[in-house]
Simulated assay, not measured.
Amino acid sequence: MHAHSLDFLDLAMEYDALRFGEFTLKSGRVSPYFFNLGSIASGAGMARLADGYAAALEDADIEYDSLFGPAYKGIPLVATLSCALAARGRDVAFTYNRKEAKDHGEGGVLVGAPLGRRVVIVDDVITAGTAVREAIDLIRANGSEVAGLLVALDRQERGADQRSPIQALGEDEGIPTIAVATLADVLGYAERRDFDADIRRAISAYQAEYGVAPAPGAA
């Protein structure tokens, strides 16, 4: 497990963003864990979160010159990631979008810096992947290339077509995917932190029933 993955999962536990038990998902599946990045809602927490994103992006070693955060959850993530990268010596411009086009003032859908040539999309967790695909279309429509997708957690869980949403994006769009942590990391974390054996068995069983291999090109 990467050091940034371990620190990220420690952070998620501290803020109750990662919980264990029985949680019925929108899909109807009963998951032994639940992840809500919105629970990390303090300056110190966001600073650590952004540093985890920055470390994962650096480790991925992809070429990019711009960041994009899809509305709404991606907006604070992309802004704080830009700050974390600046603290590491790289100043990267960021852009985000409005849900609806503004028809007065400067108008338009995009806010922030002009999109660069190679853009990394920054989000929390990909479920259906609809919002990310919309972001991809928006970025390409503005003449830029999507250099990668960066998320907090890859659930590594099969969707309707037997692929995870992140796998589908990687295979269909040819986009590298980067996760600060994965479901495999969550299981490793539970073992490292010596969680109750029932929790570990439940995660292992869920992974065996619904899990997929990491997406091609995933970091």
Rank of each mutant, 00 (worst) to 15 (best):
M46V: 10
D123W: 06
Y64K: 12
A208Q: 14
Y72V: 05
P114K: 15
I203P: 00
L77Y: 07
F94N: 14
A208C: 06
Q207R: 15
F195N: 02
Y15D: 02
G89I: 09
L138H: 06
G159K: 04
G107C: 13
G69R: 06
A44L: 07
E145T: 13
T24A: 11
G129A: 11
A218R: 15
D123N: 12
R90W: 00
H104K: 13
G38V: 07
A202K: 14
A131M: 04
F20Q: 05
F8M: 13
V111C: 14
A54D: 04
H104L: 08
F195V: 03
A218G: 13
E191V: 11
L37W: 00
G112N: 12
A190R: 02
N36I: 08
V78Q: 06
V151H: 03
I139F: 04
A181H: 01
S42M: 01
A147D: 01
Y189S: 00
R88A: 11
G69D: 02
D7R: 15
A93F: 06
E58I: 09
D185H: 08
D123G: 11
K102Q: 10
D161G: 09
A41E: 02
S39N: 14
A131V: 08
A79I: 05
C83S: 12
A218D: 11
V186A: 01
A86L: 09
G43N: 10
A41C: 13
Q156E: 12
L9A: 11
F68N: 09
R117K: 15
G188W: 00
V180W: 00
